[in-house]
Lab assay of single mutants.
Amino acid sequence: SHFELRVGTITLHFDNISEELAEELEKLAKNGVHADEIRRWWEEWLK
């Protein structure tokens, strides 16, 4: 499923992401983690 995450002024787009993972990314964003860090985390997870 597709997921969009708003982090400050940036909107990150994720394809084929589980609800659980989407929730984890939302938690990171709410805790003030920068969009670049979240994207890096996601790319690492995909490997």
Rank of each mutant, 00 (worst) to 15 (best):
H2G: 07
H2T: 07
H2A: 10
H2R: 09
F3S: 01
F3Y: 08
F3L: 11
F3D: 02
E4W: 06
E4K: 02
E4N: 02
L5E: 01
R6T: 15
V7E: 02
V7N: 01
G8D: 09
G8S: 02
G8N: 04
G8Q: 03
T9I: 08
T9R: 03
T9M: 11
I10D: 09
I10F: 04
I10H: 05
I10G: 03
T11R: 02
T11L: 08
T11P: 00
T11C: 04
T11I: 14
T11M: 06
L12W: 03
L12R: 00
L12Y: 06
H13P: 01
F14I: 03
D15C: 05
D15V: 12
D15G: 08
D15H: 15
N16I: 05
N16T: 04
N16G: 08
N16R: 05
N16K: 05
I17W: 02
I17D: 00
I17P: 03
I17H: 01
S18T: 14
S18P: 10
S18A: 05
E19N: 13
E19M: 14
E19S: 13
E20G: 10
E20W: 07
E20H: 09
L21H: 04
L21W: 06
A22F: 14
A22K: 15
E23N: 13
E23R: 14
E24R: 12
E24H: 12
L25W: 02
L25Q: 00
L25D: 01
E26T: 15
E26M: 14
K27I: 11
L28V: 02
L28C: 04
L28H: 05
L28F: 05
L28T: 01
A29E: 04
A29Y: 03
A29L: 04
A29I: 04
A29W: 04
A29K: 04
K30W: 08
K30T: 10
K30Q: 13
N31I: 10
N31C: 06
G32T: 06
G32V: 08
G32P: 04
V33K: 13
V33M: 15
H34T: 15
H34I: 08
A35W: 07
A35D: 02
D36H: 10
D36K: 05
D36V: 11
E37V: 09
E37A: 10
E37Q: 11
I38V: 06
I38K: 01
R39Q: 14
R39Y: 14
W41Q: 10
W41P: 00
W42K: 02
W42Y: 15
W42R: 02
E43P: 01
E43Y: 09
E43V: 10
E44C: 05
W45S: 08
L46A: 09
L46F: 08
L46C: 08
K47D: 08
K47G: 12
K47M: 13
K47V: 15
